[in-house]
Design a protein around this nucleic acid. Sequence first.
DNA 1: TCTCGCACTTT
DNA 2: CAAAGTGCGAG
Length: 537
Amino acid sequence: MANGGDQFGLADRPNSDCLDSPKENKQENLSFTLKPAASPQTVSSQVAASAADPDGMERIKVILHDRELWTKFDEVGTEMIITKAGRRMFPCYKVKVTGLNPKTKYILLMDIVPGDDHRYKFADNKWSVTGKAEPAMPGRLYVHPDSPATGAHWSRQLVSFQKLKLTNNHLDPFGHIILNSMHKYQPRLHIVKADENNGFGSKNTAFCTHVFPETTFIAVTSYQNHKITQLKIENNPFAKGFRGSDDNELHRMAKLQGKDYPVVPRSTVRQKACSAGSPFSRDTRGLQGSPDDVVSPFSCESGLNCGSPQELLSAPPVHYTHPHPHLQPGQQPQGYSYSKRKAEENCSPRNHQHPYKKPFTGGSPSEEDSYYHPSSYPPPPPGLSNLPTIGLTDSPYSSDMGQRQACMFAGSEPRIDEFNCTSWSYTRPLPTAMTPVEPYPPYTPHPPYSSSPQGSRLSALAHQSSPSLGEHIPHDPYQSQSSGPRSQSFQSVPSRQLGSPLREYPRYKPNLSPPLYHTLDTHTHIRCGVPEWSGAS
DNA sequence: TCTCGCACTTT
DNA sequence: CAAAGTGCGAG
């Protein structure tokens, strides 16, 4: 249980000092760059940042909605069901975003990256590492259906990613995010500036990434920890039928069972049985490797960044490894975020777009619209730089399509060279147009995603295929963070500064399939740029 | 472990 | 009312 919080070991994060934002009720995440002088963010300071942050990305703050609920799950060890058809996440990922320029258009998207390189098992009422993680799959991005939209739009109300679905089907044709069961993951939010001047592809594309450690979870095909089952039943309206408190239930159960069984809902029973608490909290973490303390989440390179998300993605650079952590002065407490200014464009010719195309068999996804896009995976941000042009200007679609979802795939392998360039495509909802070419990405054993540009390089160094956050990092950046004040604040790092290396995912072989890239006209693929930050170049 | 159909729920 | 999201439990 709660012992410490996460069982995954994620929880504790360093508290960074960076900002502490006021965490009071809610904490907000602040993102700020840590530029050297950057002031922490008070509001005022944020404003001031403009010079250095022309795009204002550093002023963006993101607050995780229902953080208390996320924390409850996190303390037990959040599990998210993954199914062939796709399963929503619960708790639902919703955020409040502030600090956006009301008139500027932004694209909000999410991706879910490996939390570490391990495969887990749940035995003896606790999670433990059983081996090395499977190669990551092609990373897919879930573009919020309202994208692109103005800052005013995003700020008006909570931004919900409730339609995002998780699947274990490597050939998923719906554009859902593909994950491996019994592996740990970390959702990330990316905010990409999409103004008219620079469509996605432009080199100046600015973006920032926000990570809330308490949203880390282990993907499962069926719940392992009864406590999680219970929390889901108690909090998810759709599972109300399993709530057992009442007699009703018992009766109900009886009916269902039709038999003589005792009629107590299992979950209830289980719970009780287990109630002892989850042992694992800490244990698990140990598993992860991170010693509890450890943690430094991210080391900051220049001191600037501290754990940038990127890092998360990417393998931690060398820095990472540093264990201990104490946070460096720039770190932050709760979530972290980083922002990058622009990516340069280098596109490497390489991107392969991989053509795979397959007919979309699946029939059209009924779901609303899913689109796939290749992208470089992980490093989102970096990649982001290349977002396709959606309609920045206004895409006609945007609103209409409110529903559509877009996904980007990671496509090509990101190797270093290549990886600089990422291509993204964005599809619109047009059905026809959209047909994904390849609906299914072939499953590649290795994932495509490498993330960051630099990553590639680094990665090489790092080598590890797994990018997981945890791994390199002394594990879980989050961990450290989580503990304290979690969530909210992030660090933002200027992208350039991030030198992070990224994690690399197993690279994907070109042959394998690149992600699909299809493209219809609609989407464009934008450029690849290398993020400045990339490597240290 | 994972998949499937089920009854139940929300939307 | 229909569609879709839930966990359950047998296979």
